[in-house]
Amino acid sequence: MAQFTEERLAKVKEIIARYPDGKQKSALLPVLHLAQEQFGWLSSETMDYVAGLLQIEPIEVYEVATFYSMYNTKPVGKYMFEVCQTGPCMVRGSEDIIEYIKQKLGIKVGETTSDGLFTLKTVECLGACGYAPMMQLGKHYREHLTKEKVDAIIDECRRNAAANN
């Protein structure tokens, strides 16, 4: 059963209080972020739970979850490499970086490694064009990427995963 932690439930209450009475639907995007943080992705069960919390119809949640690119409606790897491929990053070598990650992890864009650790995604401009090539990894950006940096990031993720097991 999808169920928020007490702390997250308190956060939901706090978010709803930001809007006028009866406009709690406005909390939908922030609450979906909270849900994804806790569960890793948005299953239909999770979405139904969010609908219940905000007293809106489940379809209102599905519509939104499928519109925005940051919500995962399918499971993803523990570490998602979201590499920018738009023009400004391309002219600074993003294609080589994407190619290198593919080789190194043995997956194609959109795939997850068989150990469930890594997913590779290409994304469109993330507002880091001056620090290209770059990728998003969780909450933060990794910028000025080189092959050596990619190696180090992969090692770092593997170490963290091992430490958390």
Binding site: K25, L29, P30, M70
Partner: peptide, 21 residues
Amino acid sequence: RGAGAYICGEETALIESLEGK
């Protein structure tokens, strides 16, 4: 926070998004 949609920079799309749509 938005959730990944350039169109939400357009002011009326932004307003829709702020309303949870």
